[in-house]
Design a protein around this nucleic acid. Structure first.
Lengths: 204, 204
DNA sequence: CGACTTGTCTACCGACCGGTAGAGAGGCAT
DNA sequence: ATGCCTCTCTACCGGTCGGTAGACAAGTCG
């Protein structure tokens, strides 16, 4: 019986749980399968997280932390207005590239109701406020189409998450989805789409 | 034991199943609950649909039919270019207004994998081709920003479905989600977003 | 050494779920 | 009237799932 030590095992379980919750949904994933994938018995998992809901909560905050960290790092490197928006989208797509179930899990969090999503959203809230302020000043300066900044942020969110999670749809609409290339293509398209949607009307 | 007659009961079951599959997910919904909501025993439900998967398939084609009918009717009334796009979005939002679980179910269909979604998509395929042709000629005529029309259609799909299904997110981002008014607001915002995203660049 | 903590295990339980078996009630056609 | 077909029911089965009880091994600290 290998002892990996507490904290390490904890995070391993959380990562695997996010994978399976994302792929199969919260209901569809079973503690048995998660434990098996980690290489441990179900009861060991229940030692770290007393209930399935507790595991979910841990996953939600962990996901929030990870996303906040990635986006924060991306923002640090970006300078200009548009660079920031592009950097955020790129960071999210890169995260999705090496952890495909991550965006699926975020969407599942939204599906599970406001309580669940709030636990996730609470962690990224500073970023949310930063984004809204960013959009607002962009609008004031005439660089972004005038509208409700919170509503625009919501629509941008749905566009990005949709592009990352609706693989089946993409396959049905576009055809020949060759995963890796397709993801890059979706990123480019999403960027163009977002850029076009934010651009102020031609007539000043 | 009330006899509602075969076909009528069949459609009642399908409608309720779409509601529950949409709300709780395919795994999360149980035949027992669906039957109970219809006012019938589980075994009666299993008389009409021998397995849960058979019920799902029936729901998928039924949902496809309904959506195709609604969009088809909306297109018949629209004349100009932009009228058509607006009519489609409006039709979808109206459908979502009196059947909130419908878009959730469509999204669940995408989540269940390509096989499931194809069964749904097959029904709307004529509309898909029509839409792509529509976008293509719009691009050729310079009325729509030039890009891959299938990819644009996919992005439009994600924007609309996202706006309809991500209620929890909306609540977290915007706050005070007062269902009815909020839906109308989202429709207006989605329309503006789509319009802006399709608009060709200013410099001709 | 011996008590305590941490981590992992085996064994089991009750609930629920999808699906089977088969009885019976009412309408319809011969 | 009789037999068939449609529809709904009660009763039950096997499997899975989340969760409990508790044994046991390996440090850690007095």
């Amino acid at each position: 019986m290998p002892r990996t030590g507490g904290e390490r095992r904890r995070t391993t379980i959380i990562e695997e749980a996010i994978r399976q919750f994302g792929r199969d949904g919260f209901k569809g994933a079973s503690l048995e399968h998660i434990a098996q994938a980690v290489g441990v018995r179900k009861q060991t998992l229940l030692y770290y997280f007393p209930t399935k809901d507790a595991l979910l909560e841990a996953c939600l905050t962990a996901a929030g932390d990870r996303l906040a960290a990635d986006i924060g790092a991306a923002l640090a490197d970006a300078e200009t207005y548009w660079d920031k928006a592009e950097a955020v989208i790129h960071a999210v797509f890169r995260l999705a590239a090496d952890w495909p179930e991550f965006p699926m899990f975020v969407r599942e969090a939204g599906r599970l109701g406001p309580e669940a999503f709030d636990r996730f959203a609470a962690v990224i809230d500073p970023l949310r406020e930063r984004a809204i302020g960013f959009l607002q000043t962009g609008m004031d300066g005439g660089e972004i189409r005038k509208q409700d900044p919170a509503m625009l942020l919501f629509t941008l969110y749905t566009a990005v998450v949709g592009a990352l999670t609706e693989a089946s749809v993409l396959n049905a609409v576009v055809g020949n989805d060759e995963s890796r290339a397709s993801l890059k293509r979706r990123e480019i398209e999403t960027l163009a789409f977002v850029r076009a949607a934010m651009r102020p009307p031609a007539q000043e």
